[in-house]
Amino acid sequence: MGFAEELQRFGLLLPLGSPTVVLAGTHGDIDRLYPAIDAALRQHPHYRLVLAAAETGAMRKYYPHELILPLPHSVAWQRWLRRLGVVLVIGPSALSGLSPAGFVDSSKAITPTMLAALLPPLAVPERKPSRGSFLIGLFGGPAIASLHELAEKLGKPRTIVCLGNGPSSEDPRLADFSDAALFRVNWNWRGRNWLTAPDMVFTADPDLPGAGRRPLIAFPTAVVGRPILLRHLRAMRPPSAGYVFIDEIDPPVADLAGPMIATNGALMIAIAAALEPERIVIAGMDLYQHPEGRYPGDTTALDGYSRQHSAEIDLKLVRSALSGFDGETIILSDNLRLALAAR
């Protein structure tokens, strides 16, 4: 366990956010209960889930789309729960006396209906500007507010390659487009030694870019992006090429106001089409249904859409974006191509 995780066990360096449900226990306990809890929280999308375990490494590999934290020290439970905004803990009975929040014994039978009844509906949170907006404006790199500015910044590319993170993102045919502008999603492609110098990265993850090249960064919303930009500033790694809040770009390309929104991969395709290149090449958009797993070379990660997203929302946006695109579209992701054709 690293130094940062030790601090988290004392209630420090915790990600603040929405009202939170904690599922605590061993890897086996969490695997057993996760389907029911995931189903319950899909009915209450404004709640956040934290998976808390003693060993976090394997958990992060299996649940890459969830927030994984180490179990707190017994003396720090109250601070840990308070800092995370925990409203419900699901875990072994030994934890019941430590939690002032609601508690469900994980040894009992648990159903999605039962859990959903314990979580009252939440109002849509007010979208407040980050307290760090002033610092971001000074040191966060150039803000890009329009598609016109973005096209100019990218050099008005004739071809844009859009890579999701599914196994088809390593299709060898992509080598034919080495001169294209490269769009990628999140940062988990680093270390694969394949198309690792993107011009633009679409992300909502707090991971920092590498110390080398700093591409343009696009965030789905300003509410998501500003705290991440502050994290970049604290690490002295601002996106010097610039950044985009997609919900503020002019003209708009997607509706991002609801509790469920398109994935970064679908937003990437919508932006690429709106930039009006001559050609768009799409790979790695496997709709979390590829037989080789969620990511290239990784058969351990749990597949499927996270609670904030769905295949239906993605396909609606991608279909709309590509239907208005007059250039050539090459789709190397078989699942996406077949889904778009099956209207």
Rank of each mutant, 00 (worst) to 15 (best):
G265K: 07
P252L: 13
P206D: 12
D247K: 05
A197P: 00
A273F: 05
I282Q: 06
L256N: 05
I271E: 00
A204R: 11
H232F: 11
D205K: 06
V253P: 04
G225L: 11
P277M: 02
G212P: 00
M200H: 09
D247Y: 07
R237W: 02
P198F: 04
L275F: 03
A222N: 01
T221I: 09
A241L: 10
I246Y: 04
M285P: 04
L216P: 03
P209S: 12
G242S: 04
I217H: 02
A241D: 05
I282R: 07
R213T: 11
L216C: 10
V223G: 02
I228L: 15
G284P: 00
P227H: 07
M236H: 14
M200N: 10
R279M: 14
G212S: 13
D286K: 13
H232R: 14
I282V: 15
D207C: 02
T263G: 06
V281Y: 03
D286L: 10
P259V: 09
L287I: 13
A273P: 02
A283W: 07
D255A: 12
P252Q: 08
S240L: 14
A273W: 06
L216Y: 03
D255R: 14
G225M: 04
T221L: 06
R213I: 10
L229E: 08
A262T: 06
A266E: 01
L275R: 01
P252M: 07
G242L: 00
A204N: 12
G258R: 10
T263A: 07
P259H: 13
A283L: 10
F245L: 10
G212N: 10
G210M: 06
A241Y: 02
V224G: 07
A283N: 10
A197L: 13
I280N: 02
V244K: 03
P215I: 09
P251V: 11
M260W: 03
A266G: 03
A283R: 04
V244G: 04
T196R: 08
D286H: 09
Y243H: 15
P206F: 05
M268K: 11
S240M: 12
V223E: 14
F245N: 11
F202D: 09
I261L: 08
D199L: 03
P239Y: 07
G284V: 02
R279H: 07
A262E: 01
M236P: 00
G242I: 03
T203L: 06
